Deep mutational scan, measured.
Amino acid sequence: SEEELEEFAKEVLRRGITIIVNGIRITEVEIFVKVLREILEKR
């Protein structure tokens, strides 16, 4: 749901943790923004 997305976004921003994806360091915020864009483009 959109509320869950908002909560996830807030949690990500609070933690600001960097994770490893395919050997490249990407912040969770960047991943969230990318996923959010993909979701919005599909609408």
Results as ranks from 00 to 15, higher is better:
Ile24Ala: 06
Leu36Phe: 01
Lys42Met: 10
Val12Met: 14
Glu11Asp: 10
Ile26Asp: 04
Glu2Phe: 15
Ala9Arg: 01
Glu6Gln: 11
Thr27Ser: 13
Leu40Gln: 04
Glu3Asp: 13
Glu11Gly: 05
Glu38Arg: 00
Glu7His: 09
Val12Glu: 04
Glu30Asn: 09
Val21Arg: 04
Arg25Leu: 14
Ile39Ala: 07
Glu30Arg: 04
Arg37Asn: 05
Val29Cys: 14
Lys10Asp: 04
Ala9Tyr: 12
Glu3His: 14
Thr27Ala: 07
Ile19Ser: 03
Glu38Asn: 05
Glu6Asn: 09
Val33Arg: 01
Ile17Gln: 06
Arg25Trp: 11
Ile19Ala: 01
Ile26Val: 09
Ala9His: 02
Thr27Glu: 06
Arg15Glu: 08
Val21Ser: 03
Ala9Leu: 15
Ile26Thr: 04
Glu6Cys: 15
Arg15Met: 11
Gly16Pro: 03
Leu13Met: 09
Leu13Gly: 02
Ile20Val: 09
Ser1Ile: 14
Ile20Pro: 00
Ile17Trp: 06
Leu5Glu: 02
Leu13Asn: 01
Glu38His: 04
Gly23Ala: 12
Asn22Tyr: 02
Ile39Val: 04
Glu38Gln: 02
Leu40Met: 10
Arg15Leu: 13
Phe32Thr: 02
Ala9Glu: 03
Val21Met: 10
Ile17Asn: 04
Val35Gln: 02
Glu6Asp: 05
Ile39Thr: 02
Thr27His: 11
Glu41Ile: 10
Val29His: 05
Phe8Tyr: 11
Ile17Val: 13
Val21Phe: 09
Arg25Pro: 14
Arg43Thr: 09
Ile31Gln: 15
Leu13Tyr: 00
Ser1Asn: 11
Ile20Glu: 07
Leu13Ile: 13
Ile17Glu: 11
Glu30Tyr: 03
Glu7Tyr: 09
Glu4Gly: 11
Lys10Val: 04
Thr18Ala: 13
Glu7Ile: 08
Ile31Cys: 10
Asn22Thr: 06
Gly23Glu: 03
Ala9Phe: 15
Ala9Ile: 15
Arg43Phe: 14
Arg25Ile: 12
Phe32Gln: 00
Arg25Met: 11
Ile31His: 13
Gly16Cys: 15
Ile17Ala: 10
Glu2Leu: 15
Glu4Ala: 14
Thr27Cys: 13
Ile26Met: 07
Lys34Gln: 11
Lys42Pro: 06
Ile26Asn: 06
Thr27Gln: 06
Gly16Leu: 15
Glu7Gln: 11
Glu11Met: 00
Arg25Cys: 09
Ile20Arg: 05
Glu4Cys: 15
Ile31Asn: 09
Arg14Thr: 08
Arg15Gly: 09
Glu41Asp: 10
Glu28Arg: 06
Arg15Ala: 10
Lys34Trp: 04
Leu36Glu: 03
Val29Asp: 02
Leu5Lys: 04
Thr27Arg: 08
Arg37Phe: 07
Ile26Phe: 05
Arg14Val: 06
Glu30Ile: 07
Arg25Gln: 12
Lys42Ala: 11
Glu2Asp: 13
Phe8His: 05
Leu40Cys: 14
Gly23Arg: 05
Ile39Trp: 14
Thr27Asn: 09
Glu41Phe: 04
Thr18Cys: 12
Glu30Gly: 06
Phe32His: 02
Ile20Ser: 05
Val21Gln: 05
Arg14Trp: 08
Leu13Thr: 01
Glu6His: 11
Asn22Met: 06
Ile26His: 03
Val12Pro: 00
Glu3Tyr: 14
Leu13Ala: 02
Arg14Asp: 08
Glu30Lys: 07
Ile26Cys: 12
Glu4Asp: 12
Glu41Ser: 09
Glu28Pro: 04
Ser1Lys: 09
Ile24Arg: 07
Leu13Arg: 01
Leu5Met: 06
Arg37Cys: 12
Phe32Val: 07
Asn22Pro: 03
Glu11Leu: 00
Val21Ala: 08
Ile26Pro: 04
Val12Arg: 00
Leu36Met: 09
Gly23Phe: 10
Arg43Leu: 15
Phe8Pro: 03
Leu36Gln: 01
Glu38Phe: 10
Ser1Thr: 12
Glu38Tyr: 06
Ile26Arg: 02
Arg37Val: 10
Arg37His: 09
Glu3Ala: 14
Glu4Ile: 13
Glu3Lys: 14
Glu7Met: 08
Glu38Leu: 04
Ile17Arg: 04
Glu3Ser: 13
Glu11Thr: 03
Ile24Glu: 07
Leu5Tyr: 05
Thr18Phe: 05
Phe32Lys: 02
Ile31Arg: 04
Val21Trp: 09
Lys10Gln: 03
Ile31Pro: 05
Glu30Cys: 09
Glu2Trp: 15
Asn22Cys: 12
Asn22Gly: 09
Val33Pro: 00
Lys34Pro: 01
Glu28Cys: 06
Val29Glu: 05
Glu11Asn: 05
Glu28Leu: 13
Leu13Val: 06
Lys10Trp: 04
Arg43His: 13
Phe32Pro: 00
Leu5Asp: 04
Ser1Trp: 15
Ile19Phe: 00
Val33Met: 11
Phe8Asn: 01
Lys34Arg: 07
Glu4Lys: 13
Glu3Trp: 14
Gly23Lys: 03
Gly23Leu: 13
Ile20Asn: 02
Arg43Ala: 14
Glu11Trp: 02
Leu40Arg: 02
Val29Leu: 14
Ile24Val: 12
Leu40Tyr: 05
Val21Gly: 04
Ile20Asp: 03
Ser1His: 11
Gly23Asp: 04
Val12Trp: 01
Glu41Cys: 15
Leu40Ala: 07
Ile20Cys: 12
Phe32Met: 14
Gly23His: 07
Leu36Ser: 01
Gly16Trp: 14
Arg25Ser: 10
Ile19Pro: 02
Glu30Ser: 07
Val35Asp: 01
Arg15Thr: 12
Arg14Cys: 10
Val29Ser: 05
Glu4Tyr: 14
Leu40Ile: 10
Leu40Ser: 03
Arg37Ser: 05
Ser1Leu: 14
Arg43Lys: 13
Glu7Lys: 11
Arg15Val: 10
Glu41Ala: 11
Glu4Arg: 14
Val12Ala: 09
Ile26Glu: 03
Glu4Leu: 14
Ile19Leu: 07
Ile24Pro: 07
Ala9Gln: 01
Lys34His: 04
Ile31Leu: 07
Ala9Cys: 15
Ile24Thr: 10
Ile39Cys: 14
Val33Ile: 14
Val12Ile: 14
Ile24His: 08
Lys10Met: 05
Phe8Trp: 15
Arg37Gln: 09
Glu6Pro: 05
